[in-house]
């Protein structure tokens, strides 16, 4: 950075800067390590995966073919992925349809007492889900929704909605007020203001929010295992745990299944990132 300048302050800063970069890398790698180890173990044989860590091993796709091939009586991979796909995508779309107007009315045209409303939205998140599971189970049973995708679609929507409203509200609040005023003066009605001006500007925020909703819903286990454990509605996390057996080694198989389970999330992340990189409202004002 400031080369050519000398003095203790600059020197200290540079050393501090190096240390911080190093720390960032160490923490980053620490976070990535379990993922790395999981992928690696997926390509090992069971004895290799369960034995002492080896530097070199012969990679095999044996575990992948084993976990994806349907076993009679058990939940098939295809069934689990299909259930997850529907539960996650329907709930995420529903969250967005509900959260975008909510965020608009909490930021751009704030309703009265909007801070209280915002708090009420997040307040359900304080509730321990364990406490709610029995009533939820009874309601689902009465409605005939046990072991269906519908129960998860509804609950994942409810689960992600508060977070989505909070996130989107802060993105909407970043939209320069003058842009909306300019659109009003240019003759745009409410719908035109939202679709032509506001949504394109908050698109990165919408992408980021949708991604989080997808991740949370994709990895959700507790509700799925309680309300929808059998093949009619069982999701990928349930299928992953299906590879845990009480007899024999299963670490490599579990790793392979987990690796497959993360793939859709990685694809969703990659898609969202392309939108997120573009800055908010660049060049709008000044």
């Amino acid at each position: 950075m400031s080369q050519g300048k000398t003095g203790p302050v600059v020197g200290q800063r540079t050393i501090g800067g190096y240390l911080l970069s190093l720390l960032a890398w160490v923490v980053g790698l620490l976070f990535f390590f379990p993922v790395f180890w999981m992928v690696l173990s997926g390509f090992k044989t069971e004895p290799d995966a369960n034995g002492p860590p080896k530097m070199f091993f012969e990679p095999t796709t044996e575990q992948f073919s084993e976990v994806t091939s349907a076993t009679s009586g058990l939940l098939s991979a295809g069934q689990a992925f299909a259930n997850s796909f529907w539960a996650v995508s329907v709930s995420t779309i529903a969250v967005m349809i509900l959260a975008i107007p909510a965020a608009y009315s909490l930021s751009i045209k704030p309703i009265g007492k909007w801070k209280d409303v915002l708090f009420f939205f997040i307040s359900t998140k304080f509730l321990p889900i364990v406490a709610a599971i029995l009533p939820l189970w009874i309601i689902a049973k009465e409605l005939g929704w046990l072991n269906t995708r519908i129960v998860l679609m509804v609950l994942y929507t409810a689960m992600n909605l508060p977070l989505a409203i909070w996130m989107l509200r802060s993105f909407f609040a970043e939209v320069p007020k003058e842009l909306i005023e300019a659109a009003q003066i240019d003759g745009a009605k409410l719908w035109g203001q939202i679709t032509s001006v506001i949504l394109p500007i908050v698109a990165p925020g919408i992408a980021a929010t949708a991604l989080l909703c997808v991740i949370f819903a994709w990895n959700e286990f507790f509700l799925a295992v309680q309300l929808s454990p059998s093949s009619g509605g069982a999701t990928v996390p349930i299928w992953v745990t299906g590879n845990v057996t009480s007899r024999g080694n299963f670490l490599a198989k579990l790793s392979a299944a987990s690796t497959l389970a993360t793939l859709p999330v990685i694809i969703a992340g990659w898609l969202a990132q392309k939108r997120m990189i573009r800055g908010l409202a660049m060049g709008a004002i000044k």
Binding site: P176, E178, L179, E181, A182, A183, Q184, I185, D186, G187, A188, K189, S196, V197, P200, I201, A281, M282, G283, A284, I285, K286
Partner: peptide
Amino acid sequence: SPPQDRDIAMVFQNYALYPQ
């Protein structure tokens, strides 16, 4: 009347151009 119905045009201090 709302701004839409006044047939006016405005230039803002910070221009307020639609960035996209």
